[in-house]
C-alpha cells in the first residue's frame, strides 16, 4: 500500500509533532525548575528529596488530571478543592462519631461526592450557565456546610480520631502508606497518581469518550450535530472530578487521621493552574493529562525546593504566578505555530 505517508510531510516531521504536543511547555518548565533547585540544594536531588517533593505533587496531580479532563471538556470546577475537605470530613465523622467501618464511611463519602459532581454537571448542562458561576455556588455552599456541620458536631473546627476507627490500618496502607525504594520512603499516593494519569491519558487518547471530551470542549454545537452525547459527557466529567476529590480527600484524611473544616480551601485554583501549565486551554478542547501531572510536579518541586534552598516559603506564590504566566505564554506560541495553515 502506498497510502502510508505523503511525500510532502518530509519537512514537517518530528519537530512539529513534538511541538504540537500540549505538554511540551510543562516538560521544559519542569526540567528548568529541577535543574535550578538541584543546583542549589543537594537534598533536593537526593532520592529522599525526590520522595519528598513527589508527595505534594501526587495529591495535587490526581486533582490536576481530573480538572484537566474537565477543562478539555470546556468546563471549570471551583468546588473541587473544598470537596476534598467535605469527603474527608464525611469519612472521619461517620467512622468516628457513628461507628461505621472506614471502607463503609468512605463509600458514603464517595456517593456524596458523586452526587455533588452530578448536580454540578446537571445544572451546567441544563441551564447553560457558566460552570465558573455554578461551581462557585457549590464551592461556597460546601464551605459553609463543612464549617457548620463540623462545629455543630464537635464544637471545634476539626474532627479527628480516625486512628481508632475500624479498618484504619488497611485503609491507611492502601491509600496513605509508604513504599521503600532506594533507601527512601515514597508515598503510596504517588502510585495512585501515576495510575490516575495513565488511565486518564488512555481514556483521552484511545477511547470514544476521550474523543467526545475534546469535541464538547472544542465546539459543543458541532459535537452535538454529529451525535456526540454532550450533556452526558460533561456530567461524567464533573463526576470524575468529584471522584478524584474523594480519592484525595480520603488519602489526606487517612494520612493525618483528622480533617480541618477548611481543608482544601483555596486549592481549586492550584488545580486549574497546574492544568494550564500542563497545556490546557482555558477555552477548552485542548490539553493533556500527562501535562497536568507535570504541572503538578513543577508545583511539588517549587513547594519543597524553596524550603530546601533555605528561602522563605512566602516566595512560593510569587514563583507560582511567574510559572503560570510563562507557561501560558509558551503554550500560546507553540499552539500558534502548530495551527498555522500549511499549504
Amino acid at each position: 500500500m502506498t497510502v502510508a505517508a505523503d511525500e510532502r510531510l518530509a519537512g514537517t516531521g518530528l519537530v512539529r509533532r513534538l511541538l504540537i504536543r500540549p505538554e511540551l511547555g510543562a516538560v521544559v518548565g519542569a526540567v528548568v525548575v529541577f535543574a535550578f533547585f538541584a543546583s542549589r540544594s543537594e537534598t533536593f536531588r537526593s532520592v529522599a528529596g525526590v520522595a519528598n517533593w513527589l508527595d505534594p505533587a501526587s495529591t495535587l496531580g490526581i486533582m490536576a488530571v481530573a480538572i484537566a479532563l474537565l477543562m478539555i471538556g470546556g468546563e471549570f470546577d471551583l468546588s473541587a478543592g473544598v470537596l476534598t475537605g467535605t469527603t474527608g470530613l464525611i469519612t472521619v465523622i461517620l467512622a468516628t462519631r457513628y461507628g461505621f467501618a472506614i471502607p463503609v464511611a468512605m463509600l458514603a463519602a464517595l456517593a456524596a461526592a458523586l452526587l455533588v459532581g452530578f448536580l454540578n454537571g446537571l445544572i451546567v448542562v441544563r441551564t447553560g450557565l457558566p460552570s465558573f458561576i455554578v461551581t462557585l455556588g457549590t464551592f461556597l455552599m460546601l464551605q459553609g456546610i463543612n464549617l457548620g456541620v463540623t462545629k455543630a458536631l464537635t464544637g471545634t473546627v476539626q474532627v479527628g480520631g480516625l486512628r481508632r476507627a475500624e479498618g484504619y490500618e488497611q485503609a491507611r496502607a492502601a491509600l496513605a502508606g509508604t513504599v521503600s525504594l532506594g533507601g527512601a520512603d515514597f508515598r503510596v499516593a504517588i502510585l495512585w497518581w501515576l495510575g490516575v494519569t495513565a488511565l486518564a491519558t488512555w481514556v483521552l487518547m484511545r477511547t470514544r469518550a476521550g474523543n467526545w471530551i475534546f469535541a464538547v470542549g472544542g465546539d459543543e454545537r458541532a459535537a452535538r450535530a454529529v451525535g456526540v452525547p454532550a450533556g452526558r459527557t460533561k456530567i461524567a466529567l464533573f463526576m470524575t472530578t468529584a471522584g478524584a476529590a474523594w480519592l484525595v480527600g480520603s488519602i489526606l484524611a487517612l494520612r493525618f487521621t483528622s480533617v480541618q473544616a477548611n481543608a482544601g480551601l483555596g486549592q481549586e485554583f492550584v488545580y486549574i493552574i497546574a492544568a494550564v501549565i500542563g497545556g490546557c486551554l482555558l477555552t477548552g478542547g485542548y490539553g493533556s493529562a500527562v501535562g497536568a501531572s507535570i504541572g503538578a510536579v513543577i508545583f511539588g518541586m517549587a513547594d519543597k525546593g524553596i524550603v530546601f534552598a533555605g528561602w522563605d516559603a512566602d516566595w512560593f506564590t510569587f514563583f507560582l504566578g511567574a510559572m503560570l504566566l510563562l507557561a501560558t505564554l509558551a503554550n500560546r506560541l507553540v499552539r500558534r505555530y502548530a495551527e498555522e495553515v500549511r499549504h
Partner: peptide, 8 residues
C-alpha cells in the same frame, strides 16, 4: 459553521 472542530 458546524462542519468541524478546529483543534481536533
Amino acid at each position: 459553521d458546524l462542519a468541524m472542530i478546529p483543534l481536533m
